[in-house]
Design a protein around this nucleic acid. Structure first.
Lengths: 255, 255
DNA sequence: TCAAAAGTGTTTCCCATACACCCATGC
DNA sequence: GCATGGGTGTATGGGAAACACTTTTGA
């Protein structure tokens, strides 16, 4: 809807020159989480092809197209450009705006968290002449360590303040897993999953093993009984007793 | 610490011209909450003296001094300029960056929540030719209503998207009160308070009455036993049995 | 028949709630 | 004394955790 205002105000707006105030650059940084084959928490990092921090690993993201997109859309566009991901769970995290966090100029960065199952994350290696890789996150005395078999990166070697962003994202994810439906976004297939798959996701994120009978009980109470999840008339068999399959519905609210 | 880099990178940085990309304006918006004399949740609003939304009520805040301050410092500076508040509990809320949320130009706004006891909130009426008032928050069919005896404002009459900011801030506050130490920031005096004072704050924010014996028990368990609060060797008497006084220590962590 | 994983049932414990009751003060 | 708010103790119920046990498959 167009902004309604008086003639006097309209004149003010027409004369308004935004360029008279110095403005900061604004970027988005996106922490894309997934679980790897071993069910370990992993994150997508991109090797920078440009200065600053050339050849360093960083979170995907980039400058906002001012006036052409919202910050949310900027994050979505950057993610699509760099990884091809179009529809994934998005959540704004925090805005980093310390002085000198970017050596070029004042850069304010709005960070986002994305959750996606690994098979949907087709990393476009070589796109934009950039390396993009998924790294398993582990810890040692120096802090977070990112490794993918070939490469090992320590948090202090990441570009910008991206270690801070990742730390905050993991913390938020760990908190949210208990009261939001985030775990479902990491399922291979939300429309057909076993309780044990969901349990593994919770175990990975919380970094502790859970009791299956108890997990099942709260799952039934919180999701099946509330119709957020429906039980399918279907089972899947791999080893041991076949498992019931469930389909995630959600409550169709966007936050 | 100065940014360490190669000579090649230094050259790139020296030549970097930030102005070649169009940048958005960035502001902070601050939701300052307090409890009024009647222990009702209240918020500080400022009557705008300038276009756009001239003469409308809005949250305090303003444009960042690019390159001279962090966004956190911007929020603190704006709050100090408009209300004189220097030390108060600060918490970043969310960043609003939809297109057209400001009729002038693209404006991205980082919102903050501040909690402060009313006696510390000396409203500078007339400062900057602006009215600043504390309004009690209530609700009717149209949504939030802000009133202070003389003036009544409905949420749809607020400037910009400030109603959204306030709604989100209240939601966050209600969630945080259960697992963060926020309530202490609304006490008249953190260094000498009665359990019943703290209970009233919780009741106001959660908008329901609590059982004093049970409140006391969880207070003792969560705060006194964990040394976040110490019991003073002091009582205060007003009416009825004198009450023990407590002093809030916290755990000296900043988030 | 055995291992493996799914699924059920039971016991225990903690914690939130509810509420009965006692205590110390001013008037 | 008695009204008022502070403070203590106890009973109850529901949910989380621990775990014993059953079921159904493949090999």
């Amino acid at each position: 809807m167009p902004y309604q205002c008086s003639k006097e105000e309209r004149e003010f707006l027409d004369k308004y020159d935004a360029s008279k105030y110095e403005r900061p650059s604004v970027t988005t940084d996106i922490a894309v989480f997934t679980l790897n084959e071993l069910n370990k928490l992993s994150i997508l990092l991109i090797k920078r092809g440009q200065f600053p921090y050339k050849d360093k690993w960083a979170l995907p993201g980039g400058f906002i197209h001012t006036g052409k997109e919202s910050i949310d859309d900027c994050a979505k566009r950057e993610l699509k450009e760099e990884t091809g991901i179009e529809d994934a769970f998005f959540n704004q995290l925090y805005t980093f705006g310390d002085l000198n966090r970017d050596p070029r100029t004042t850069v304010i960065s709005v960070s986002y968290m994305v959750l996606i199952p690994k098979h949907k994350l087709k990393v476009h290696a070589g796109d934009d002449a950039q390396d993009a890789e998924i790294f398993e996150i582990s810890y040692d005395v120096s802090g977070m360590v990112f490794s993918n078999g070939d490469i090992t990166i320590r948090e202090k070697d990441l570009a910008f303040d991206h270690a801070d962003v990742i730390r905050m994202a993991i913390k938020r994810l760990r908190n949210r897993i208990d009261y939001e439906d985030d775990a479902f976004n990491l399922l291979k297939d939300k429309d057909e999953f076993m309780i044990s798959e969901l349990k593994k996701i919770h175990e990975t994120i919380k970094n502790k093993s859970l009791d299956l009978p108890n997990f099942r009980k709260s799952f039934i109470r919180d999701y099946v009984n509330t119709k957020k999840v429906i039980e399918l008339d279907k089972t899947i068999v791999s080893k041991g007793k076949p498992a019931k399959l469930y389909k995630f519905i959600g409550d169709d609210f966007y936050e």
